[in-house]
Nucleic acid binder design. Structure first.
Lengths: 189, 189
DNA sequence: TGTCAAGGTGAATTATGATTCACCATAGAG
DNA sequence: CTCTATGGTGAATCATAATTCACCTTGACA
């Protein structure tokens, strides 16, 4: 499975289906889903999962990395728009709202990865995404403060602290209400 | 194990030690700890666990119920003090701070119970605790609003929504900071 | 102190699930 | 059209855990 030479067409197809199915199954049944079940739902044999991923942990990590990949792009797009004159605070809240949706949708996968990665290790791919988001978020934050829309004593860490705790299991309406309540504490008086 | 006649002295001792040990082990190793391990750490044989609890799920539910039992009393004490002239908002934030500590300390057990209780069922004992807390919290909330210390459009649901999301895995200092940030959004302007 | 039911023991049973591997199938290069 | 490396298969193996149970121990009451 080394990326040396490109995957055969059918292999690529299967790999994609496996990751999509794994996401569904984990979302539906939690981190406990068996490889057997994921294989069956993908329409392949267990052995095939192992042809693509050395073990369950790696499969889950691949799924989570793929699920969150778009977030970093989104953060950087928001920052770019702010740089081109869009109100920074609006970009910030817009990004946070979309981020909440993404995390909510991938909550089970996130939990699964956390449960399977022994000790506490975070997947390198996730570490990379996090770095990009942190950077973009920091700049957005400073821009919003410069425009007087955000408390100047609010740090990126504060933002993360608050962000890290939003209600993943609530309905979208409740999530929006939550964000509104919480942001009130961050907006400049 | 019916509560008909009191437990024999050694049995009571063991039962207490088992629950304490189970709490430790779950906190340290997650919901996945084996009964074997809990038994070993308690200094008894596996069979003994099953003499006291029909299965792992019931053991975990007993542990979590015991861990959270004091919270309801605390809520009611706070309410009582407010009724005797203590500032309601102070009682409210005091209670919330202590609640955060309790939840943080019992985070792993809470997660374990959630993971083990098939479907989504909440233990009846927990349901009862929740009802008492909700009641006390509602009255505290209204008192704080009557004293002009809290936004009047803030409901008990809002309080729960925000409460349900505090950062269990952060250091105490970070938790306090979080509460301060979030409460700012709830305090009357 | 003697009795015996409550309490304790831990090897054995039963389940479940991850991972392996010897062998089969076929994309796609030549 | 032929090969053959890549990809697929799934029964078998290995490991881990929950739960049971036939048989000991011992608190505590008479």
């Amino acid at each position: 499975m080394s990326p040396q030479r490109p995957l055969r067409a059918d292999a690529a197809r299967n790999r994609a289906r496996i990751m999509a199915t794994a996401h569904e199954q984990i979302t539906e049944h939690g981190a406990g889903v068996s490889m057997e079940r994921i294989a069956a739902a993908s329409g392949v044999a267990v052995g095939t999962l192992y042809k693509h991923f050395p073990n369950k942990t790696d499969l889950v990590n691949a799924v989570i990395a793929a699920s969150f990949a778009p977030v970093a792009d989104d953060a950087e797009d928001s920052l770019r728009r702010a740089g081109q004159g869009a109100p920074a605070m609006e970009e910030l809240t817009g990004f946070l709202t979309r981020l909440m949706d993404t995390v909510a949708h991938n909550q089970a996968v996130k939990a699964a990865a956390h449960a399977l990665n022994t000790d506490h290790a975070v997947h390198p791919a996730m570490r990379d995404l996090e770095a990009r988001v942190t950077s973009a978020l920091g700049q957005l934050l400073r821009a919003a403060q410069a425009q007087g829309e955000l408390r100047t004593d609010c740090t990126v860490d504060d933002l993360y602290l608050v962000l890290s705790t939003f209600p993943t299991d609530q309905a979208p309406a409740a999530r929006v209400r939550w964000l509104a309540l919480v942001l009130t504490g961050l907006i400049a008086r």
